[in-house]
Write a protein that binds this DNA or RNA. Structure first.
Lengths: 299, 299
DNA sequence: AATGCTTACGAACAGCGTAATGATG
DNA sequence: CATCATTACGCTGTTCGTAAGCATT
């Protein structure tokens, strides 16, 4: 279970080819073959079928762990370096698309005020990319959002050394076309919507599995899957009648879609700050800045 | 960050001695020295002071990660073996002291019914020992308890491949001496008890840090710490007036202590089944057996 | 001086590449 | 027969133990 072996195992499993993995890792075919043989030998079981190259059941299982293990090691290294090394010359801040533009802006303001000389980079990424990046030190700060029960923490991938603070909890809305029969309702329960047409846009709206878990049904089915991260694009899809989506209530919406509050007992949109690599006082200042009451527009 | 190096680092840091670590691991002093040197070299920083041998700040940080990394690797290995190997000839079941005797008994009944020929071992351990053991395959099943907000999962040590199911949520009681001024109250709020004398018995009662987190104060201070796992002993300490403790309401109590329900808004005693190494249908059967309505004694 | 970590050095081993071999479509 | 994984083999670098060195109590 040498990390090197795990790394090449991941490469082989994802590329589906020993030679491609070798090229990717800068090894030779032969070395990759030896790595896999060593790993299979040490675990006493075949991990990959050859021709075609694909993980066996045992390999599937290992694959679930391998990435997490490497990430954990990387996180440890980053954490140690943080204690030792001088403070970074640049701060990289990552957020998920729905983390909230105003909050992001405020975080950036706070960062640039407290560290005048330091360059700040901002980046949008998917939720687990942010989590992994913060854990491994690629990002210094992350803002992630997701669906959870009130005051529950978000379910982040097993990532280790990342500290989190809740930053906001918003209500949820169902977004539907403006001319949808339900668009004028004051509120909607999710059970009533189980049989609706849904757009599954896990990177930009509430992921359907989360909704399924919350409603404890498995009737919520995706009519269309959108894997991009562009909210406007998703809203256009909704407006065009391709399906519904659940979004945080805090968004500004265009006129051709309607938003109806979701009346789900234990379901909120939650935003969390991830700050594995920032010292505690700075982090609390930042959380304070982010949780400060917003200047709300009346509309 | 070779796992072997991490392992010897842990051994050195915990024993406080290179030679003792060498003896523990079956290496020679010299090898241990080289391991540590290699690790420090690869991280570019000193991890241990010599004479006396103690972790530096960077070492402390690494130490927090090292165990988790090794555990994660062990969990992966155990998980793969589970897919491959034949079913174990013996089932080892571990539970925390407060997981509930009746529930434990029921779990054992269920296990022995579904697998008539198989020996079952039962063991009591601390919460993170159970979690680690289940993750690494040392235990096949675990039942752990703890304090949490309703329907929140328990905060278990970062353990990776363990699946959990909630099995029960009990109310909490404050246990006090029978002649305590508050003993006749119908219920008590934790804030009112902030300045009381508490017994910190993290392995057998609600750990004070959990209560502090729940009350959002830091006034709950331990007058006495009890690190054993014997409930009767703890109750005797309470009866003798050494302090209060918070326990699940489902316990049977002796006559010389009184139990007053805790009126804390979002605080319950929760029991979870950990079943990393049991297949899904068996696990759900077991959860069903455990969550079935109890035969309640009226008293 | 004794204890205990470090360094030097040689032997055993493991890891990688080249190249030959084997299997599969 | 072409592609791609495996095996054979030699080289290199790493790891461990023995033994000598060195620092601290």
């Amino acid at each position: 279970m040498d990390p090197h072996l795990l790394r090449t195992f991941i490469a082989v499993a994802t590329t589906g080819s020993f030679s491609a993995a070798a090229a990717e890792l800068g090894y030779t075919q032969s070395a990759v073959s030896q790595h896999i043989a060593a790993l299979e030998n040490s675990l006493g079981t075949a991990l990959l079928t050859r021709r075609p190259v694909a993980p066996t059941p045992a390999g599937e299982r290992l694959l679930e762990h391998a990435g997490a293990i490497l990430l954990r090691i990387e996180a440890a290294r980053a954490d140690v370096r943080r204690v030792v090394g001088e403070p970074p010359g640049e701060i990289v801040f990552a957020a998920t698309p729905l983390a909230g533009a105003t909050r992001v802006a405020r975080a950036l303001t706070q960062l640039r005020q407290t560290r005048p000389g330091i360059a700040v980079t901002f980046e949008v990424a998917r939720r687990d990319e942010v989590a992994r990046g913060v854990a491994s030190g690629a990002y210094h700060l992350g803002l992630v959002d997701g669906i959870a029960a009130p005051s529950d923490p978000l379910k982040l991938p097993d990532v280790g050394a990342v500290r989190t603070s809740a930053v906001a909890q918003d209500k949820l809305v169902v977004v539907l076309p403006d001319d949808h029969p339900l668009a004028r309702r004051k509120r909607l329960g999710l059970p009533a919507l189980v049989d609706a047409r849904w757009i599954d846009a896990p990177d930009v709206a509430a992921p359907l599995p989360d909704l399924r878990a919350a409603t404890e049904t498995d009737g919520i089915r995706a009519a269309l899957t959108y894997s991009g991260t562009d909210i406007l694009c998703l809203l256009a899809l909704v407006a065009a009648g391709h399906g519904l989506a659940v979004l945080p209530a805090s968004l500004d919406l265009p006129a051709d879609v309607a938003a109806v509050p979701v009346h789900a007992p234990r379901l909120v949109h939650r935003t969390e700050l991830l700050y594995g690599h920032l010292d505690e006082p700075q982090a609390t200042d930042l959380v304070a800045a982010l949780t400060a009451p917003a200047i709300r527009r009346t509309n």
